[in-house]
Amino acid sequence: MVTATPTSARSETARTRRPRSSRATQRIGYAFIAPVAIGLAAFYLVPALATFGLSFAEWGQFGGWTFNGFENFATVFRSDLFWRALLNTIAYLLIGLLVLPIALLLAALLNRPGLRGVSVYRTLYFIPFVTLPVASGMVWKWLYNGEYGLLNEFLGLFGIQGTYWVANPATALIAIGAVQVWTQIGYYLIIFVAGIKAIRTDVQEAAEIDGAGSVRRFRSITVPLLTPTIFFCSVINVIATLQIFDLIYVMVQSQAANPAFNASQSIVTLFYDTAFVDNDKGTATALAFLLAILIAALTAVQFQLQKRWVTYD
């Protein structure tokens, strides 16, 4: 996604005062960008356009394709699996958003003046994010195990009857969504910690002198001044969760007989199945295209809504 580096605006203006651009410089410029430009064109731009075109085509078994209008989209819309996967994906998205308040709260706590062990905490919180998602999925699947899982053992201490968390259609999605949150906390924590650090300390101090307690300072100063960062994280988080795949694949999919299969599939796992298990490339292309539209639409909606709650000073 697009990032903001503070340098861009400044040097954009400085650039225009250079008249020197000989033919040789031009050639060097093209030569320097050629490797990436060719690679991006071949592997990204052309494929993106191809997907657009091929979502309106039927793919031949051995290559080749014929135009078939909106047939692929009709197939997708007629499929119960698609609507189920769409609803599931939205559910993952909503659960996934919980990472923002959690990370924000932890970041606020980590920024307490004079707190010891900040770097230790930060390291520990960040580890799940760098851990191979496949490995995290396996560990959590084991913790969630219905018979020998540690979670049920722990709940048993309080007399709570556990379940087969990732095989029970009622709990699988929530259980996987929770792991998704767990893996992402460290990432947003780092962004929020940096964001809070950037808030001018004189504002904080003035509020403290005025007698505002730390909870109140958090609510009335930190959060409002941090809304641009929160907005940015929310956009990134929505885009990432809409593409959830690894954890579902590891925790549910590889067990074809899992009763919670349909209750936990996302659009991307459905895409993978359609394209590479059922080998129905036309329908899969339409699915991918719809996902891209969904991502673009939800991002656009967020950009619209930001005017109501994001404060830029």
Partner: peptide, 21 residues
């Protein structure tokens, strides 16, 4: 600008054509 537009495309959209390549 074309480079930037690549940033907006989710990877799933590219996988099938990339696979064909």
């Amino acid at each position: 600008a074309l480079f930037l537009s690549v940033l907006m495309v989710p990877s799933q959209l590219l996988i099938l054509p990339q696979y064909q390549i």
